[in-house]
Nucleic acid binder design. Structure first.
Lengths: 217, 217
DNA sequence: AAAATTACGGAGTGATCGATCCGAATGTGG
DNA sequence: CCACATTCGGATCGATCACTCCGTAATTTT
C-alpha cells in the first residue's frame, strides 16, 4: 500500500489550508515561498517535492478553497431551486462567507490574478482563476435563462445584461468586504439587486418557488 | 525663473503617463523599476530624483490617472443633474472608459491595492487607493440620499444597501472588463441595476435562510 | 570666468525572490 | 540484512528586487 520510500511527515490538507489563507490574504504575487515555509513549518525541499512549484501549490490551494469556503456559490447550480431563489442564496451565502471573521476577507477567486503579471510565468495562474470566474458567470447566466423560461423574468429581459449585473455585483462584493463595508449593507444590496428580478406573472413564479422550498435545501 | 542647476531633459507628464499605463496593467507590486526605466527611457537616478521612490511615483501616477481617464466618475458629484441621471452617467461613462482600447482595461482604482501586502512598506499605497474608493462610495451615497429627498427613490429605501448595490456593481465592472465581458453587456447590466431605481417598495424581505454551511477550515 | 547647483548615465548596493542540490534520515520489498 | 525509493533539513543557486553612489554634463548665480 505505502508507496515505498520515506513517508512524508506532514498532512497535505494542513499545508493547503495554511497556503490558502496566505494566498487569500495577500494574493499570489505578494505571497513568498519564505512565508509559505514559515506558515507550514516545512522546508523548501518538502514543498517543492509535494507540489512542484509555487504555481502548483497555488493551484492546489485554490482547489482546496473551492472545495471549502468557495463552495458556497455552488448553490447556483441547484436546479431544484427556482432561479431567483438560487441566485438569492448564492449572493447572500457568498456575503456571509466573505465577511466571516474565521478566515481572510473577500473571495479568493474574485481577488486573485486580475491584473497582468510582469512575465508570462504566471499567466497560467490568471487563467486558472479566470476560468473559475467564467464558470460562475455561466452558472448565473443559466439561472437567468431558466428564469426567463419559467416566466420568473420578463421575456424581453436582456439575458447577458442581467447576468452581468448579478455577476458584477458579486465580484464587487469582495472589494467592498476588503474595504470594510458591513455585512448588513451588503445583504441589503443583494436584495436591491434582486429587486430587479420582477415577475410579469407572479403567480407562476411564486408556485415554482414554493415547490423549490418544499423540496428542501 | 529657472530653478538653477541643470534642467531636466524630460517632461514629467510623459513619464507619469507611461508609469500610469504600467501600473494600470500590472498593478503596483508586479510593476518593477526596471520596467518603469525601460518604458520611460530614464535612468534610476532621474526617476528617484524626480519622484523619490517607487511609492512616490505610483501616487503621482494615480493623480495623473484621476485627472485623466479616472475623471469620468466625477459626474456623480454634479448636483445640476438629477440623482438618477448622475448615477447613470457615472456607470455608463465608467464602462465606456474601462473598455476603451486606447489604454489598459479596467479601472486603476478598483484593481490596485486590494489584497494585503507582504510587509508594511506599501500599506500607504493601499490606503491611497482605498481612500479614493471610499470617496466614490460617499458620492454615490450622497446621490442616493438626494434621490430619496427628491422622491425619485422610495422613502423606505435602504440607503446604505442601495449604495452598496451600485458601488459593488461599479467595482465588479473592472474585473469583468479584464475578463473580456463585452461593453454592450455591461451597459445593459448598468441599465438593469438602474431599473431598481424605479422599483417601488415591492422589494421582498430578503429571504436569506442562508446557510451556516460556509467557511471551511 | 569661477562657483554653486541640479540632472544625467551607468555601475553597483544588500536583500530577497523562486527554485535546486546535497547528505542524512526513514521507510518498503527482496 | 540489504539495496532501493522517497522525504527530510539546510545551504545555496543565479536572477531580480528597490535603491544608491559616483563622475560628468548642463545650467544659473556671483
Amino acid at each position: 500500500m505505502s508507496p515505498a520510500g520515506r513517508p512524508r511527515a506532514f498532512v497535505i490538507e494542513g499545508v493547503l489550508e495554511a497556503a490558502m489563507r496566505l494566498f487569500w490574504e495577500q494574493g499570489y504575487e505578494a505571497t513568498s515561498m519564505a512565508q509559505l515555509r514559515e506558515a507550514t513549518g516545512l522546508s523548501s525541499a518538502s514543498l517543492y517535492g509535494a507540489f512542484g512549484s509555487k504555481q502548483g501549490l497555488f493551484e492546489r490551494a485554490v482547489e482546496h478553497y473551492l472545495a471549502g469556503p468557495g463552495s458556497v456559490t455552488d448553490v447556483i447550480a441547484d436546479e431544484a431551486l427556482s432561479p431567483r431563489e438560487a441566485v438569492a442564496r448564492m449572493l447572500h451565502g457568498s456575503i456571509d462567507m466573505q465577511t466571516d471573521t474565521s478566515h481572510p476577507r473577500g473571495c479568493l477567486v474574485a481577488l486573485s490574478g486580475i491584473v497582468r503579471a510582469p512575465g508570462d510565468d504566471d499567466a497560467a495562474v490568471r487563467r486558472t482563476i479566470a476560468a473559475r470566474r467564467a464558470m460562475d458567470r455561466a452558472r448565473i447566466r443559466a439561472c437567468v435563462v431558466r428564469g426567463v423560461a419559467t416566466g420568473e423574468l420578463a421575456g424581453e429581459t436582456d439575458v447577458d445584461g442581467f447576468t452581468s449585473m448579478i455577476h458584477g455585483f458579486l465580484l464587487g462584493v469582495s472589494t467592498q468586504v476588503c474595504d470594510g463595508t458591513p455585512a448588513r449593507d451588503l445583504h441589503a444590496a443583494a436584495d436591491a439587486a434582486l429587486a430587479a428580478w420582477h415577475a410579469p406573472s407572479a403567480r407562476a413564479a411564486g408556485a415554482r418557488a414554493a415547490d423549490a422550498r418544499a423540496a428542501g435545501v
